[in-house]
Design a protein around this nucleic acid. Structure first.
Lengths: 245, 245
DNA sequence: ACAATAGTGTCTGTGAGACAGTATCGA
DNA sequence: TCGATACTGTCTCACAGACACTATTGT
């Protein structure tokens, strides 16, 4: 703020059209786990710049909505998911490189959304023809490889988001956000192993998660072997545990 | 983005004056430790709204600077600190409540800056008369008490920033950012105790930090007792340790 | 000598990690 | 009976936590 002006005077001038403002957008990182790999939803660009390249879904922030609301609107517009579903959202980081979009100055607030694959597959039943969400999921590790082109600074966003999820997996319960309401412990363990990128000992893992889950009483059979018990996450914050390391 | 328009057409219209944009500001949380308490730099408002109330220093983001640059500019404008000093900066969170500023829609990106008290006191020597930084430091815990008024949503910001620092103190080296280049282990321990809000055992603490510090060879005397060795932080990232709990 | 703080050696209990063993399914 | 996976009991070793001890200053 200019030190020589009163705040009122400064604001009066600032508000006038002569002061240019950056645009504010929200970009969404929709993560899920598919084929035992962390995947992210991407769309193909239909316009310049980066024509044909992959990018994250995004929207401009309206004057009458918060960033969180914009992120959820973006999610609904892209996936057509119905209200009521509980989806994990989290603000990731705000990106402000001056030329991050070559067309104009856009400051982008990135949000993470974690969705169980089953839920995306459900949504696919109500998609317009030829727009299957599941086909737009890309393996995160492959996107991050050198040589792979991603539009704008979205590769940085994905890298940053992946790290955040990995870190949070160690000391919070976000892994549960990738699973449906009920799940088996082998499923939960596999999820942690994918996020942490290392294998865990079954017995130790079960000891650690035992206070975070409760039995449903049901069992599931998935092959020629002993069936596994179905569990559900016990109530409580997403930030209260410690797995791995 | 409106689904019925091509991206180009949408942008052409969006760029035109008819689309109103929110303003983007940066608010700065300058933390330091004074009298064995976590303190934060606040200014008194000289204008409506919240006339006379306390608020965080902030600036509007210019078209030709990133958020990080705006945060540093804010820091320089308020403190007059010289280039070259190494200050810890970190993006905290982006606040977007629609009426968080009653005058107009402002989205604010908050940044944390951690400064050793000694450095602020140094800066005070070059301040214009009657503008001592040190006198504008407020005890964080007292600001957060019920009944204490803080302008805008800055109380939320302070609460959130305090929690972030507390959490990071456990698994990173941010405590070092509150100390000068060289320091003693009792000083370092005290810093951790303030941030974590609990007392630590001397012997255990020293074992834990021994790989994060190196002796300078010098000693300091601070009273009628054994002098303590001066240490300096070893090179390395701010995110590699674990203290407390 | 004593108060005060700096700094060190060592015991113990907890818990993560490692491994071995049992249970339950289909074929 | 066998292969496959679910599930459990227990040993060990590292380390956080707790405490007791020694070291070095000023008065």
């Amino acid at each position: 703020m200019n030190q020589d002006l009163s705040e009122e005077e400064f604001l009066r001038r600032y508000r006038s059209e002569s002061y240019e403002k950056p645009s504010v957008a929200v970009d969404l990182l929709i993560f899920t786990i598919k084929n035992e790999k962390l995947c992210i939803y991407m769309t193909k660009r239909q316009a310049h710049p980066f024509w044909g390249g992959l990018c994250l879904p995004g929207v401009f922030v309206r004057m009458d909505e918060t960033l969180e609301e914009a992120a959820k609107r973006c999610f609904v517009e892209k996936t057509g998911f119905p209200d009521g579903s509980e989806i994990y959202f989290e603000q990731l980081y705000t990106w402000s490189g001056i030329h991050r979009d070559p067309r104009m100055r856009i400051i982008s607030v990135s949000y993470i959304a974690l969705v169980p694959l089953e839920q995306l597959q459900q949504l696919d039943k109500v998609q317009p023809e030829g727009m299957k969400l599941e086909e737009q999921l890309f393996v995160v590790e492959e996107l991050l490889e050198k040589g792979v082109e991603v539009a704008f600074d979205h590769k940085d966003m994905i890298e940053y988001g992946k790290e955040r999820i990995k870190n949070k997996a160690e000391y919070s319960k976000i892994a549960f956000a990738f699973l449906p309401e009920t799940f088996t412990l082998p499923q939960l363990q596999k999820t942690y192993e994918i996020l942490l990128d290392k294998s865990l000992y079954k017995a130790n893992f079960r000891k650690k998660v035992q206070d975070m889950v409760e039995e449903t009483g049901e069992m599931v059979l998935s092959g020629a072997h002993r069936p596994s018990k179905l569990y559900r996450a016990v109530q409580g914050e997403m930030t209260e545990c410690r797995i791995g390391k």
